[in-house]
Simulated assay, not measured.
Amino acid sequence: MPTGLVALLDDVAAIAKVAAASVDDIGAAAARAGTKSAGVVIDDAAVTPQYMTGFSPARELPMIWKITKGSFRNKLLFLLPAAVVLGQFAPFLIPVILICGGLFLSYEAAEKVLELFHIDETNKHEKPALDEGPGREAEMVSSAIRTDLILSAEIMAIALSEVTEQVWWQQAIILALIAVVITVGVYGAVALIVKMDDIGLHLARENEGIVASVGRGLIKMMPKLLAAISVIGTLAMAWVGGGLLIHNVAELGWHAPEHLIKSLSIPLVTQAPQAIAGTLYSIIFAILSGVLGVAIGAVIAPLVHRIFPHGEAH
């Protein structure tokens, strides 16, 4: 075989190895970044079904599809280019943006806790009027897309903080991958949640025996499922919000909150078996971060309620 061809094949093999390594790096980085933003994703899935309240079942899926398209625009057309530019030219702003996101999530979590215990209900949400006109549908879709923009910005900022060591095109691919996967996952789950009672009703009406029992079970389960999602969303917001605040104020040079949480967490795991000590420490750290997040949010919430009364903050 001619020497030149051998050299060419060696070059091709080397390029293929580099490309494969890059794909592996991108996949691993995307997985890490996606995991970090899991709390915001849960919040997104828990919040969205409320925008379908009061509409006929026939309008629910079309509304979700409109919101999904708006979410893709938010992430891919607006936030993705902004995130790549930020990562290249102003990465020092990422901790500041994440602190703002942490404050927002902590406020959201604390607001739900305050409402649960009937404390400071000045901003308690009113139930929407049962008006199915096109004007109200457009209003609800627009409101959902605005909320998605805020949550998507937090997701992209969290993801960007995990891939700052990548070159710009790898950042773009990772963020685009996360955007697509999260959007499909969130709104696919929302569609399933919203239509679950209709599925149960169909099974109960059109079948007998076990299948009908399953349908009736789905109908009975839905209120509990929605309540559970709300609780999980609140816990996730508190955990992620508190964690963002602790880690990013440390990035800016203030380590006292992080040291406090560590000093409280470490004594609780010193007697634990070594095999589970690391996991137990992470759990305790997350719980204490969530408590701190709710405490900070409880200070912010009354102030926000008085500046933006009657739900205008959302």
Rank of each mutant, 00 (worst) to 15 (best):
G4V: 07
V6Y: 00
A14C: 05
K17I: 06
A19L: 11
A20Q: 08
S22V: 08
V23H: 06
G27Q: 04
K36H: 07
A45D: 04
V47Q: 05
Q50E: 06
Y51K: 06
S56V: 10
A58T: 13
I67L: 02
K75E: 05
L79W: 01
A83L: 08
V85P: 02
G87I: 14
P91R: 12
F92T: 12
L93K: 03
L93T: 13
I94W: 00
I97M: 11
F117D: 02
D120F: 05
K124Y: 02
G133C: 14
M140S: 13
M140W: 03
S142F: 03
A144E: 08
R146D: 05
R146L: 15
M156E: 08
E162H: 10
T164C: 03
T164V: 12
W168S: 15
Q170I: 11
A172W: 02
A176H: 03
L177H: 01
I178Y: 00
I178R: 01
T183A: 05
G185Y: 07
I193Y: 01
D198I: 10
L203G: 05
E206G: 13
A212G: 07
V214C: 09
G215F: 04
R216N: 12
R216K: 13
M222R: 10
M222H: 00
L225D: 01
L226E: 06
A228S: 11
A228I: 08
V231P: 00
T234L: 15
A236D: 06
A236W: 05
A238I: 09
G241Q: 08
G242A: 11
G242R: 10
G242W: 07
L244Y: 02
W254L: 15
P257F: 07
I261M: 10
K262Y: 09
P267T: 10
A277W: 00
T279N: 04
I283V: 15
I284A: 04
L288F: 08
S289Q: 07
L292C: 06
I296C: 04
I296Y: 02
G297Y: 04
A298K: 01
I300M: 07
P302A: 13
E312L: 12
A313H: 12
